[in-house]
Design a protein around this nucleic acid. Structure first.
Lengths: 147, 147
DNA sequence: GGAAATCTCCCCACTTTTCCCCACTCAACC
DNA sequence: GGTTGAGTGGGGAAAAGTGGGGAGATTTCC
């Protein structure tokens, strides 16, 4: 499993491309073949899953019971945003317009490594997000991970 | 498990590098391969975990369920600060700008061994921290460790 | 159906940053 | 007093990030 971490603020060029930090590229497993699946984040950002990780996600979704209305809705609304993106010769991907619109990403993007995925944020939106989640980290650790 | 102890005040050069005290380097286990993962301390400092220690932490985070909102937030806000740093030929590491900004580390750094991790402080901030935590050490020992 | 416009990639070029290596100083210790 | 090891500083090659041109494919519009 890929283990992404770290943060970096990069620019998005006029063609909608952004570089993926070299450290994250080197954390990519060979099975990903330099390819990501981008999709809408649960937060206001873009999630980028390496191809191999995305396969696992797809597996989960395909195992949901399609006779269940909620499950159908979930799969539909998640998959409709998913797009594949490959690294170019310079280690960049181009961001689909639908996703960068959703995340309100302009000419700057904050790239965050979050374990099995990479997150792409509008830097301002991220600052805003942090302001809305001011719970003390120590308390959160205790609550989520136990003592 | 590595057991770091002691303190030392070192300089940070113009390239953002600082030496790790030789005594702490020799306390590094071979499995760490001369590599640390730096991350944001709960206090206003940088935590440096030897690679092998960090692996254990990462393992815990990777087991969290990313369908849970709090877990996502936790992973995001912890891992975004984590960066790997390897010792160079002279026993130095370079401090990522994001972390030295957070800890307000300039051209001097106070290095403290704290069991399984090393802490990097702005010397002034550390003095300030001590002023704010003036509880008598004897009383503290009793409160924390007295059965 | 064909021409024009647009979009996608792939490649090249430039700038900045990072990393590796060499060199110097100082203190401790034979 | 020379040697060794530790801390500090800096030069230069290599890598990373950024911007843009242009060929080929696709879409649009007449």
């Amino acid at each position: 499993m890929a283990r992404f971490k770290g943060q970096a603020e990069y620019s998005v060029d006029s063609k909608g491309r952004t570089a993926i930090p070299a450290k994250m590229r080197s954390a990519l497993s060979p099975e990903a073949q330099g390819s990501f699946t981008l999709t809408k984040g649960f937060e206001k950002c873009i999630y980028a899953y390496p191809q191999d990780e995305w396969k696992l996600k797809e597996e989960e979704y395909s195992n949901l019971n399609t006779n269940n209305r909620d499950a159908r809705h979930l799969v539909r609304t998640i998959l409709m945003w998913a797009e594949e993106a490959s690294l170019d010769g310079q280690g960049r991907i181009s961001l689909p317009k639908s996703l960068s619109d959703y995340a309100e990403i302009g000419d700057k993007v904050l790239i965050i490594g979050a374990m099995d995925r990479i997150e792409l944020w509008n830097p301002d939106q991220f600052a805003h997000y942090l302001q809305e989640h001011t719970e003390d980290q120590e308390a959160l650790v205790e609550r989520v991970m136990g003592s």
